[in-house]
Structures are given as structure tokens and as C-alpha cells.
């Protein structure tokens, strides 16, 4: 009996320390819901506007309750650029390959810089620090990438030049410093493991949150990039275009057409549903990548929650 009370009390005590008070929980939850709504509402509006008819926008302006729904904008997008499907696949391919490359380059460098005993550590910290601030500029990079390295009009032009970043390397380094204790590596070394094996089999698995974080950043960066395509892919190599570039040039074209109605076939000036098409473009480019977010999220959401602490 008394023992029962004891364990009960103990459990209560634990609960007291692991969980915030219910009132606090409500307050925090409310705060998060509030923030989530502030962030969700505009995005939701994008979706609704993209599904509204152009006429409804004209009359009511942006509204969550359009007078008339229409798929016109999406139809226009599909119709305008027959290579949009191909571009979609390109973007996925570039994003996956690029993210993998990026993870390899940043994690190896980050790991090297995180080892306190690495003799060249200081040199290489400066080595990656300088390019973070100074760059040779567009023309110099263009000359190297397009002419010396021959990347022009290849998929590699959209992958390699942006696969590494000092910012990511340094974040990686900091993660490794705090989460990979030296002792683990030392003991592995005593067991006779080579550094590369230690890195792949021991360091990476315990650094999944870091890998997921940088992987997420890389994925988004690749998905959203269109500058590389603009400069390194010729205008008539349609089959290499990534999605973002197709959308951006379509957008430019719409504004160009509506500015220069003289050059247009009579009767077409008003047929471009420009406002809704713009929003539809956002939907097309955001939805796929937003769907990938929960996949990454599960790795950097802490396992240290109430349930996780064993009793």
C-alpha cells in the first residue's frame, strides 16, 4: 500500500518536471496556432485566388470566398508551356541529385572542421570562410563554368556550382561539435576502424537531425533555383529547363505581352488571366516541395518529449 503510494507520488513528481503545466500548454499551443494561422492564411489565399475566375478577382479583389471558381489558370499554364511536365521531372531530378551532392560535400567538410585534433582545421576554416564573403562575380564565374569547365547546356550546370555552401558547412561543423563526442570516435579508432568508415557508420547515423536540416535547406534551394538555368542553359534547350525557370519566363512573358499589346494578335490582350495565373504558378511550384517538408521534419523534431523519457 505504502509502496504503491510512493511510486504514484514518484510518477507524479516526474510528470511535474517533464511536462509543463496544463495551463502553460494551452498558452503555448494557442501561440503556435496563432502563428500558424498568420502563416497559413496568405498561402491559403494564394490557393483560392488561383482557383477563382478572373472575373471574380476583377469584381471582388482577393477574397477567400470567390464568386466563381475556375480552373482556367491551371489550364492556361498547361496549355502555354507544353514542356511544363518535362520541366517538373527535371526539377525533381536536379533537386535529388543536387541534395545528395550537397550533403556529401558539406558533411565531409563540416566533419573535418569539427575535429579538434585535425591539424589543417584552422586553415580550412579560413578556406571556406573567405568565399562566404568574397566572390569573383557573375562574369568570372560564367567564364569558368561555361568555358573552362564546359558546363553550359548540361544538367550539371544547375547542380554542381551551387551544391556546396560555407554557411551549410559551418552549421554542419557546429552540429558535429556538439553532438558527436570525441570519445565515440576514439573508441572506434581503437577498434581499428578507418576514418571514412567511422564517418559513414558512426557519425552520420547519430547526426540525422543535422543531415535532415541541411538536406532540407539544399532541397529548397535547388527546387527554387532558376538563375543557373537562366545563365547556363540556352534559350532553345527546352528539355533541360527546370520548373521554376519555365514559370519565371512565363511570368515575364505575360507582363511583356500585356505591356506591348501592339504586338499582339487583336483580341488576345484581355484573354490572359494574369492575376490568377500568377497565383496558379505559385501553387504549382510550392505544393510539391511543401509536401516533402514533413519527411524532413520528423528527423529534426526532438525525440525528447514527454513520452520519450523512460520511467
Amino acid at each position: 500500500m505504502s509502496e504503491n503510494v510512493k511510486t504514484k507520488k514518484k510518477a507524479e513528481a516526474k510528470l511535474k518536471y517533464t511536462k509543463v503545466k496544463p495551463g502553460t500548454n494551452v498558452a503555448i499551443s494557442a501561440l503556435f496556432i496563432f502563428l500558424a494561422l498568420i502563416c497559413l492564411m496568405p498561402a491559403l489565399l494564394v490557393l483560392v485566388v488561383s482557383l477563382s475566375s478572373e472575373n471574380s478577382i476583377r469584381i471582388k479583389g482577393y477574397s477567400y470566398v470567390p464568386t466563381e471558381l475556375s480552373l482556367e489558370a491551371f489550364r492556361y499554364l498547361l496549355h502555354q508551356s507544353s514542356y511544363i511536365g518535362r520541366a517538373f521531372l527535371n526539377s525533381i531530378g536536379i533537386t535529388i541529385v543536387g541534395t545528395l551532392f550537397g550533403l556529401i560535400t558539406t558533411s565531409t567538410m563540416g566533419f573535418a572542421l569539427s575535429r579538434p585534433n585535425y591539424r589543417l582545421r584552422k586553415f580550412f576554416t579560413w578556406f571556406i570562410f573567405i568565399p562566404m564573403l568574397f566572390s569573383g562575380g557573375l562574369v568570372a564565374s560564367y567564364m569558368i563554368n561555361a568555358h573552362i569547365l564546359g558546363l553550359k547546356d548540361t544538367y550539371w550546370a544547375m547542380i554542381i556550382p551551387i551544391c556546396c555552401s560555407s554557411f551549410y558547412c559551418i552549421i554542419m561543423r557546429t552540429f558535429f561539435q556538439t553532438t558527436v563526442p570525441d570519445a565515440i570516435i576514439e573508441s572506434a579508432k581503437i577498434d581499428g576502424a578507418r576514418m571514412i568508415r567511422i564517418f559513414v557508420q558512426i557519425v552520420l547515423p547519430i547526426s540525422l537531425p543535422a543531415i535532415a536540416t541541411i538536406g532540407l535547406f539544399l532541397t529548397f534551394a535547388y527546387w527554387n533555383d532558376w538563375l543557373m538555368a537562366k545563365y547556363y542553359i540556352s534559350g532553345n534547350k527546352h528539355d533541360l529547363f527546370p520548373l521554376q525557370y519555365v514559370l519565371i519566363s512565363l511570368e515575364e512573358n505575360i507582363s511583356f505581352l500585356s505591356r506591348n499589346s501592339q504586338n499582339m494578335t487583336p483580341g488576345t490582350a484581355n484573354s490572359i488571366p494574369s492575376e490568377t495565373v500568377r497565383m496558379a504558378m505559385v501553387v504549382v511550384s510550392v505544393v510539391p516541395i511543401a509536401c516533402s517538408y514533413p519527411f524532413f521534419q520528423k528527423y529534426f523534431v526532438s525525440g525528447l518529449t514527454i513520452g520519450a523519457v523512460k520511467g
Binding site: T108, F111, A112, Y118, L120, G136, V139, I144
Partner: peptide, 30 residues
């Protein structure tokens, strides 16, 4: 030996930096 191994591990990244960051660096002269 450790040093060499670590160096080899990040050698690809080092080459990337040389090609894509340091080679165009002469552009700052502009």
C-alpha cells in the same frame, strides 16, 4: 595518418571550392 584520412575525406569539397569559388576570385579585380 588521421590527418591524411580526414584530408582525403574532404578533398572533393576542397576541389569544389578551388574550382567554383577560388578560380573565379580574380573577378574582384574588376
Amino acid at each position: 595518418f588521421d590527418n591524411l584520412e580526414i584530408f582525403l575525406l574532404h578533398l572533393p569539397t576542397t576541389i569544389w571550392y578551388l574550382l567554383f569559388c577560388y578560380a573565379p576570385m580574380f573577378g574582384v579585380i574588376i
